[in-house]
Simulated assay, not measured.
Amino acid sequence: MNIIVPATSANLGPGFDALGLSVSLYNEVSIQSAKFSSVSINGEGSENVNLKRNNLFISIFNEIFTELTGENENFRVVFDNKIPFSRGLGSSSAVIVGAIASAYVMAGFKADRQVVLNRALTYENHPDNITPATLGGFISAVVDSGRVYANKFEVDDSLKAVVVIPNVAMNTNQSRSVLPKNYTIKECVNNLSHAAFLTSCFCSKRYDLLKIACKDMMHEERRMSALDELFEVRKLAYENGALMSSLSGSGSSFLNIVYANDAQNFRNKLAGKFNKFRVEIFSFDNDGFQIIQS
């Protein structure tokens, strides 16, 4: 059995811990029954020896598989990781969602997406990354009584994501530590109104209004201050016609949404200015995780 799980970009400006979308950058995991347990890692994390010994995917997978079957079995697990760690592209959510879905399938059950989503809350207590990793598309999600409720809208093929990926990691917990414990009414109203408007733009495909809709007053610039170049990324992005430019998750990556016809030229402009960073073009993923039976 193989599973692919997409990268995600969360928060999306004002949608702090509530809005997210998925892009066509994937982690793939192959799992097979074996006489002895083994782990191989290709791509991101392949040089980190500790990932084989202390692997979150393996831990979650074994926990749920044993819960479902009452058995401890051996598996050969091969990771092909494309999603960079600690860059605001949902690498941990991909691990969590992938491990849960895989455990259900290998235990002989259907990987029901709502079940996977609710179980994922045990390991990540906000829904903005785990939901697009599970469902794909653009999502607006809330948590109520331990259950995730989400509305999904497919992102149009006429759009591309141009993602700037700095060579600097940002730890989510450290990134949250720079945020204030209290916000003003003005800040709260700004984010409520803009998050609602941003959701309506994706719903109605009014992509021309995304620049107005994605304005944030709660977290984005506070987090961007850890890497001053991010302010320049956003400035250059809007000077070159970005429909939307916002910090991806807690950073350090920056998500830019452009029309597909403009993507290559736009990417070249950013890559020319920020030649120490990766600048990649991705389509949007509207499917979420996918199980491939071998």
Rank of each mutant, 00 (worst) to 15 (best):
M1L: 10
A7L: 11
T8K: 10
S9E: 07
A10Y: 06
G15Y: 05
L19V: 10
L19G: 08
Y26W: 05
S30I: 12
S38W: 06
V39M: 14
N42G: 06
E44P: 10
S46D: 01
E47G: 13
E47W: 13
E47H: 11
V49A: 15
K52G: 15
N55W: 04
F57H: 07
I60F: 12
N62G: 14
F65S: 13
T66V: 06
E67G: 01
G70R: 08
R76N: 05
S86P: 02
G88W: 10
A94Q: 09
A94W: 07
I96L: 13
G98W: 04
S102M: 14
S102N: 03
A103S: 13
A103H: 09
A103F: 05
V105L: 09
V105P: 05
A107C: 08
A107V: 07
A107I: 07
G108T: 03
R113Q: 11
V116L: 10
V116F: 09
L117K: 07
L117I: 05
L117N: 12
P127V: 08
N129P: 07
T131L: 04
P132D: 08
T134H: 13
T134F: 05
G137L: 08
F138N: 02
V143C: 09
S145C: 13
V148H: 13
K152Q: 13
V155L: 13
D156F: 01
D157W: 02
K160L: 14
V164N: 03
I165V: 11
I165Y: 05
I165R: 07
V168A: 01
Q174A: 11
K181S: 12
K181T: 04
T184E: 05
K186V: 13
K186T: 06
C188Y: 00
F197Y: 09
F197C: 02
T199S: 14
C201T: 01
F202Q: 01
S204G: 01
K205Q: 12
Y207V: 05
L209S: 00
I212S: 06
A213Q: 03
C214S: 08
E221I: 03
R222V: 03
M224H: 01
A226Q: 02
D228R: 04
E229N: 07
K235N: 06
N240P: 12
A242E: 00
L255I: 06
N256W: 05
I257N: 06
V258W: 10
D262K: 10
D262S: 04
N265R: 15
N265Y: 14
R267Q: 12
N268T: 09
N268A: 12
A271C: 03
A271W: 08
A271M: 11
F274P: 11
V279S: 08
I281L: 09
F284Y: 09
F284W: 11
F289G: 14
S294A: 05
